[in-house]
Design a protein around this nucleic acid. Structure first.
Lengths: 190, 190
DNA sequence: CCTACCGATCGGTAGG
DNA sequence: CCTACCGATCGGTAGG
C-alpha cells in the first residue's frame, strides 16, 4: 500500500508515547519502543530522525490539539460564556481521547530540544491569554466571580480540565461529556 | 555540630529534587546532584543508599504533606463545608511552598520502586476517598451541585489545587491565600 | 568523603 | 529494515 510508510510511522509514535508514559523520556529506550512496535531498534531511525524527534512530534500533536479545541470553542458562538462552556467540553474530550500523549506532553516538556520547547511555550502562553480574555468577559456578564483574579480563575479552569488525564479511566463507564458536565456545574456555568 | 550529617542529607535531597525536576528521574544523574550540593558523586552514596532511595524520600515527603493537609483541615471544624474550605487552603499552601517536590512527585511516581509506589498509591486512594466523603456531605448541605458525580467533583477540586504547581511563580506577588481565595470563590464555597 | 574504576546500557551509525 | 557495532555515560563499588 502507498501509506505503509505513514502507517508504520504512526505506529512508532504511538509506541513511543506508550513507552515515554511508562518510563519517562530519558528512561524510555528506543529498544523498548522498537519491540513494542515489532521492529528492530535501528529501524526506528529509518522512520524518525532521533529520539528527541519522537518526543517533539508527540508534543507538537498536543500543541495542535489545544489550539484546535480553542478555535472550535470560539467558533461555536459569539457569547463568551457559551465559548467558555464549549472550551471546557472540547478540552475534556481532547484530554480523555488522547490521554497518553497529553500525559507525555505535561511530564516531559523539559526534555524537548530548545527550539521546539520555546515554540510550544509561546503557543501555551498565547492559549492561556486567550482563555483569560474569555474569563474576563464572563466575569463582566456575572457568570464568574467578578472580584477574583482572572489569571487565577483561568488557571483554575484549565487545571481542573487538564488534571483529568491523571484520574480518568476509559473503563470506568464515565463519558467525557459527563466529566465536562460536572465541571461546568461546579463552575456555575450551566 | 551534631546535626551536620542531617543537614547535608537534607541538602542532598533538595538538590535531588531540583535536578529531578529539571531532567526527570532517569535523566537526572547522581553526578549533577552531587555538583549541585558541592560534593563528589560517590559521596551521595555515603548519605543515601541509592538513586531510587532519593526519589522515594522525596515522594514520601509529599505523601506526608498531603495527609497532614487533610488532617489539619478535618481538625478545623466539624462542618464539612468548613473542612473543605480549609482543605483547599492547606493544599494550595503546601503545593506552593513545596512546588519542587510536588512536581517531582506528580511526574516521577512511575520510577519509584514497587513497594514505595504501591504504598503511596494506597495512601492516595484513601486520601481521595476521604475528600470524596467531604464532597458528598457538602452536596447534602447544598454547597456543591447536588446531582453531579461526587467522584468527578472531588477530582475537579483536587485537580484545580494540584495544577497550581505548574503555573504559580513565587515572584508573581500572588500569595497562596489569594490563590486559595479565588479557587473557593470559583467553587462557590465562600 | 575523595580518587579510581567497573560492568551495563544507551543513542546512534555502518554497511548492506 | 536487519546484524553488528561503537563511543559515551551512567549507577554503583573498592579502598582508603
Amino acid at each position: 500500500m502507498a501509506d505503509d510508510h505513514a502507517d508504520k510511522r504512526r505506529a512508532i509514535l504511538d509506541g513511543a508515547a506508550e513507552v515515554f508514559e511508562r518510563r519517562g523520556f530519558t528512561g524510555g529506550t528506543t529498544r523498548e519502543i522498537a519491540s513494542t512496535v515489532g521492529l528492530s531498534q535501528p529501524a526506528i531511525y529509518h522512520y524518525v530522525g532521533s529520539k528527541e524527534a519522537l518526543l517533539s512530534e508527540i508534543a507538537l500533536q498536543v500543541d495542535h490539539d489545544l489550539t484546535a479545541a480553542l478555535e472550535c470553542a470560539l467558533a461555536v458562538s459569539a457569547d463568551p460564556v457559551a465559548q467558555l462552556r464549549a472550551l471546557v467540553r472540547e478540552l475534556c474530550n481532547a484530554v480523555i481521547v488522547n490521554r497518553r500523549t497529553f500525559a507525555v506532553y505535561w511530564k516531559e516538556l523539559h526534555a524537548l530540544p530548545d527550539d521546539v520547547r520555546s515554540q510550544i511555550a509561546g503557543d501555551e502562553r498565547l492559549f492561556v491569554k486567550q482563555v483569560e480574555e474569555l474569563v474576563v468577559a464572563a466575569q463582566g456578564q456575572g457568570a464568574l466571580p467578578p472580584h477574583a483574579s482572572p489569571r487565577i480563575l483561568t488557571e483554575a479552569i484549565l487545571g481542573m480540565t487538564s488534571w483529568t488525564y491523571r484520574w480518568y479511566r476509559p473503563d470506568s463507564g464515565i463519558s467525557p461529556d459527563e466529566v465536562a458536565g460536572a465541571y461546568l456545574q461546579l463552575l456555575g456555568l450551566v
